[in-house]
């Protein structure tokens, strides 16, 4: 019997290392230690072994069993490892690029708008919105632009036909025409009419001018409007805000100056010039960037705010112009062509 055991073990150690798959392994396992396996058969012969030999024989069988089990475990580990290895392809070339879509990009005008919004949010401004199709009241009348003002000419402003019907752009008066807003200032009026002071909003959005398209003009472009209404708002507060905006945007060495100007809906009114050393593509000392002023008392009266109680300021700037200055872009049409080589430069 001892010889049989020795032979069995020898046979097993010859056979097990060449087991290559799990079914082969299971078959081998059954042949040795299964219910009809060779070792099991030998164990069944224990009954025929003389009693005095049994302990020694039992020990031998146990040792053989342990050895077999050890060899089986090793084989199984080897097969399991081989199975995992088989799931792998060849080693990767880590230098090949990912074939999946590259990260998306935000448009430079969105980036500039968001940057301004986050700067102004710190000063308590929230974003308001208004329609791009407007009526004469919101775009002109309420902003103190008289009926015969050149800005209202069909030469400069896009109008919709007199019989145009808009479901969600209501007219204030029956006779007025629908138009494409020429500035975001119309949102000032909508905000003041729908809310109550104090108000502190910005309104970024698309505006339209009937203009020849060239490197600096576009049929539609984007503005960012600001409006602050409260008690005792002063010219100095307006200057402080614009100083804050542009130094936040361009750095502490930025200089901001006010030049008197004229807008129908602010009094006094100013144009704002910037001077910052590190701006690309700007070789003039001062660059005009923004219009602003103190809300005209007539505008307040028009929306039912008492100009003796309420005061405020408004400002508006062109996002394309600002983006062109910040990034050094020299043609406004690039914003609307969306060449991927352009879009991917900013995100």
């Amino acid at each position: 019997m001892q010889d049989q055991l020795t032979a069995l073990l020898a046979q097993a150690s010859a056979e097990f290392p060449s087991l290559a798959s799990r079914p082969a392994f299971e078959a081998a396992k059954a042949r040795y230690v299964g219910p009809h396996g060779a070792l099991t058969t030998l164990m069944k012969q224990m009954g025929g072994v003389p009693k005095e030999q049994r302990p020694a024989m039992g020990k031998l069988i146990n040792e053989a069993k342990t050895q077999l089990q050890g060899q089986l475990d090793a084989a199984l580990t080897r097969i399991a490892a081989a199975e995992l290895a088989a799931r792998l392809g060849p080693a990767v070339d880590a230098t090949l690029p990912s074939p999946d879509p590259a990260p998306g990009t935000r448009h430079p005008l969105t980036l500039v708008r968001d940057e301004l919004a986050s700067i102004l949010r710190k000063a308590g401004f929230v974003i308001a919105d208004g329609p791009e199709v407007e009526t004469e009241y919101f775009c002109f009348d309420a902003l103190n632009t008289p009926a015969d003002h050149p800005a209202r000419d069909a030469q400069d402003t896009f109008y919709l036909p007199a019989d145009a019907r808009f479901g969600n752009v209501a007219k204030k008066t029956p006779g007025e025409k629908h138009l494409l807003r020429t500035h975001t200032s119309s949102v000032q009026i909508r905000t003041m009419l729908s809310g109550s002071p104090p108000i502190r909003i910005i309104a970024p959005g698309r505006v339209y001018r009937r203009d020849t398209v060239d490197a600096t003009h576009s049929a539609n472009f984007h503005q960012l409007e600001g409006l602050y209404v409260d008690k005792n708002v002063t010219v100095r507060d307006l200057k402080a805000l614009l100083d804050y905006i542009f130094t936040s945007l361009l750095g502490a060495d930025t200089k901001v100056r006010f030049r008197p100007h004229y807008f129908g809906y602010t009094e006094p009114s100013f144009e704002v010039d910037l001077s910052a050393r590190h701006l690309p593509k700007v070789n003039k000392e001062w660059v005009e960037i923004c219009g602003c002023g103190m809300v005209d008392p007539l505008v307040f009266s028009g929306v039912g705010y008492d100009p003796e109680v309420w005061s405020g300021y408004a400002f508006g700037l062109g996002l394309e112009r600002l983006a062109m200055m910040l990034y050094g872009i020299d043609d406004i049409r690039y914003f609307y062509q969306n060449d991927l080589r352009f879009l991917k430069q900013f995100a």
Partner: peptide, 12 residues
């Protein structure tokens, strides 16, 4: 943008 799209702005 998270899905790899590039934002465009086209004429109205």
């Amino acid at each position: 943008v998270g899905q790899g799209f590039n934002e465009c702005i086209t004429y109205t």
